[in-house]
Write a protein that binds this DNA or RNA. Structure first.
Lengths: 211, 211
DNA sequence: AGTATTTCCGAGTATATGCTCAGGTTACAC
DNA sequence: GTGTAACCTGAGCATATACTCGGAAATACT
């Protein structure tokens, strides 16, 4: 019988590394985890494989993690941190007061490129990792993305007569997420993504302004 | 090492049942597969578990399927058939010439209710089964949904001055899929789906008519 | 009824993966 | 240098799952 539900302790770290070499070991394990997920999928991920790819012994793996799921959780945490850093960097040098549509297109492009960069890893995480939605890092990311969008709205509300209906914000996030997911993970490469992103930004902007 | 890629033969049937009792056995296995996926997830699915829940012996399982993935493939095939049947039934008694928005809302509601009915099973299939997108039944469903939408458009094109941009059809399918997926599989139960579906239908109709 | 065919059974084997533990190695403080 | 703590090692045991195979039981055919 396989596992049914997951406890918080499954995703915790066993011991925090102190010395430099042990930090390197932990980092190597996380990177090995990412490589294995990309190349062999979640079914191909095992603690033994992680140890082998990371170049450490199996004993060291269990020194710092209670199991493979904790390593995956750590990997997701690092990826979320990358997204957060990118988002904050972009926010700093964007003035959406000038042109709402351009700002929207700008962020769609940035998120799209980041997703493309981790294409295969993202595919495995989304479509194969059973507990992805229950990971603290994942839930935190969703909250922060909403906050960024809300903040952007408040920022521009002075300039535009924003009259979005109550459900518009929800429709926007799910539509954008659904389109980006399909574009990055499902759609054939034949389709030209830039044009689609143009059209998406345009329609989202229209929803905001016209309600 | 886990499995990396899947061959077509992994999803094929080994032997077609002839007698009535063997048909019942195969059916029991597929239903057992669905129940285990709902209750224990993909990680909890094993051939031994399927045999036990179905009330047949492990030998019988391998008499008709090369492995558990073939049973999952068969299950997906049956579910796609259910969607197809529902869709055709609705299409027969809908006259979208009268009111495009009502027709849109009608179909959104129908698809939403069908997804809700198989909520947990759908969640496991989408977020845990690694090869779902490569299943013939899945690919076929995507094609047919596009065809239904296109047919509906042709049907109503005479009445309305449809001027959808080239990318609108793509944005529509991904937006609708993304919103329904989130609504059914992720959104908290507190959320009122009917109002969201109203808003979604309205916006999709507007995209069609106004481009 | 007798025979052939289909269907079913389940103990048993092979293999993969999780995880431990006793002991070796490296880094650091004094 | 010496002692202590941190870090690392990997053979090996426990467990779970995939899958086989010889034969029994049910069904169909004539």
């Amino acid at each position: 019988m396989g596992q049914i539900r997951w406890k918080v302790s499954d995703f915790a770290v066993k011991k925090e590394p102190g010395q430099a070499r042990s930090k390197a070991s932990v980092q190597a394990m996380v990177q090995a985890c990412a490589r294995i997920l990309e190349r062999r999928g979640y079914a191909g991920l095992s603690t033994n494989a992680i140890a082998e790819v990371a170049g450490v012994s199996i004993g060291s793996v269990y020194e710092y993690f209670p199991g493979k799921d904790a390593i995956v959780a750590r990997l997701v945490q690092d990826m979320v941190a990358e997204v957060r850093a990118m988002l904050e960097g972009r926010l700093a040098l964007t003035d959406s007061r000038n042109d709402l549509n351009s700002a929207m297109r700008y962020f769609l492009g940035a998120i799209y490129r980041l997703m493309r960069k981790h294409r295969e890893l993202l595919r495995v995480l989304v479509f194969q990792v059973p507990y992805l939605h229950q990971l603290p890092a994942t839930r935190q990311l969703e909250i922060e993305l909403q906050q960024v969008l809300m903040a952007g709205l408040d920022y521009t509300r002075e300039q535009y007569a924003l009259s979005a209906q109550p459900h518009t914000l929800y429709l926007m996030t799910t539509s954008v997420a659904g389109t980006l997911m399909h574009l990055v993970l499902v759609a054939p490469p034949a389709m030209e993504p830039e044009g689609i992103l143009d059209a998406l930004a345009e329609k989202m902007t229209a929803w905001l302004i016209e309600g």
